[in-house]
């Protein structure tokens, strides 16, 4: 059940009401016909004192995300949105991934960071094509990447020269789950140092992904971490999601991750 399959327009209910919706304080949430909720409704002026808009706030982002996805499809580039909390090991997983493939120059990385090019420099050093997005602007930096930002980053990559593209999102377990960037698949890197309860605390993120890389497994002997409980919590919020246990530091388990990547399809 992906977060990015949106139902934020009440379309579960198909009452056939028309546009007489300016008197809507009837306690109902479900009277818009589905067809009314797409596109630009700025022309629906139904009275002098009130305008009916009925526009989803993510519409613009989702439209741009769909454009990104079409562009990546045309270029034949499988794209993964990689999300995690700060310090879970996204960049180290990517370094290991690049080191394991024969031609890392066929892998692109869109690197989202609030400030600095530290991660981008690490990944360029191992051969990836990196497009850096610093999100610091205005009030101190965005907490996520959105589809227009990723579109800008795509402009700076030679997509025809790529087979695989990672969007390394800003480290954050809340906001990135809300914004479709146009990737084909979403993957989380979760570190066992984060505790077993994270899927229950951040279910929207954990529900939005196709696979969870369980990282820092080399630390298991030193932690009071209950792997079975974590797995149970994860399956509660995202039934059937695949987990891949790795240590990006030692390289253990990376074969299973690479096998998952080879199976992943656009």
């Amino acid at each position: 059940m992906g977060r990015f399959h949106r139902h934020d327009d009440d379309t579960g209910h198909g009452h056939g009401h028309g546009h007489g919706h300016e008197h809507e304080h009837d306690g109902g949430h479900s009277h818009e016909p589905e067809a009314d909720l797409h596109g630009d409704h700025s022309g629906y002026a139904t009275g002098a004192d009130r305008i009916v808009v009925l526009e989803r706030i993510f519409d613009e982002n989702d439209r741009r995300a769909a454009e990104n996805r079409e562009r990546l499809d045309r270029a034949g580039v499988l794209t993964l949105n990689l999300m995690s909390s700060p310090g879970a090991g996204k960049t180290t997983v990517l370094e290991r991934t690049l080191a394991a493939v024969p031609d890392p120059g066929r892998i692109g990385i869109i690197e989202g960071d609030i400030e600095t090019s530290i991660d981008a420099d690490r990944l360029s050093a191992v051969g990836a094509r990196v497009s850096l997005l610093n999100t610091a602007n205005g009030f101190g930096g965005e907490c996520h990447l959105d589809a227009p930002m990723v579109a800008n980053a795509l402009d700076r990559l030679d997509l025809e020269g790529l087979d695989l593209l990672f969007v390394e999102n800003v480290g954050n377990l809340v906001c990135p789950a809300e914004f479709d960037v146009g990737a084909h698949r979403s993957v989380m890197v979760y570190a066992i140092t984060e505790g077993e309860e994270k899927p229950l605390k951040y279910p929207v993120m954990f529900r939005a992904v196709d696979a969870v890389i369980v990282n820092k497994m080399d630390l298991l002997p030193h932690l009071d971490f209950d792997l079975e409980l974590f797995e149970k919590n994860l399956q509660t919020v995202n039934p059937g999601v695949e987990t891949i246990q790795v240590s990006a530091r030692t390289g253990t388990g990376m074969d299973a991750w690479l096998a998952w990547l080879r199976r992943a399809e656009r």
Partner: peptide, 29 residues
């Protein structure tokens, strides 16, 4: 709660009907 389990049988296999809405409905002028 953000954890989605059936209140009757505890199953996580649910089809969401409402709860993900985020839209502008009307403007008062």
């Amino acid at each position: 709660t953000l954890v989605l389990l059936c209140c009757e049988c505890g199953s996580p296999d649910l089809e969401l009907l409402t709860g993900e809405e985020f839209l502008i409905t009307t403007l008062d002028l």
